[in-house]
């Protein structure tokens, strides 16, 4: 009788040990899985597809140098609602120390990508 009880205790102990080992293994796997997930998240930041998507996004958002006097809100400055970007200046603008005075509205030449644009500024 005593021997049977001892055997049962041994079996239960073995089962408990197995259970905890499985639990420990599961947690290890979880940590590994999370590590891989985090690594993927980092890759997202600089992935080529991300980069190319951003490029197309920008082309979607901005005109690229039509040089036809097209006016649009400054693309890099949603906050500056009144500012505008010109791809060419209107006539009769005076160069005043690097700023272009066009009938009282001032513009500064800036390089947007590979395009020279004229950004409205406050003097």
């Amino acid at each position: 009788m005593k021997k049977t009880t001892t055997n049962r205790i041994k079996k239960i102990s073995a089962l408990l040990a197995t259970f905890f080992l499985i639990l420990l293994f599961s947690e290890e796997m979880l940590v590994i899985a999370q590590g891989i997930r985090n690594q993927q998240a980092r890759m997202d930041v600089r992935g080529t597809s991300r980069r190319t998507a951003r490029r197309v996004d920008r082309r979607h958002d901005y005109m690229e140098g039509n040089n036809t006097g097209y006016v649009e809100p400054a693309p890099a400055a949603a906050a500056a609602a009144t500012a505008a970007v010109l791809y060419s200046l209107p006539g009769n603008c005076a160069d005043e120390n690097g700023l272009y005075n066009c009938n009282g509205i001032y513009y500064e030449a800036q390089m947007e990508g590979t395009t020279v644009v004229y950004v409205q500024v406050q003097r």
Partner: peptide, 20 residues
């Protein structure tokens, strides 16, 4: 030729960062 600044992403083209 004339040297000009780059328009940076996120920059607001206001007098504070574009005015000569």
């Amino acid at each position: 030729s004339k040297k000009i600044p780059f328009m940076r992403l996120g920059d607001a083209p206001t007098a504070s960062n574009t005015k000569k």
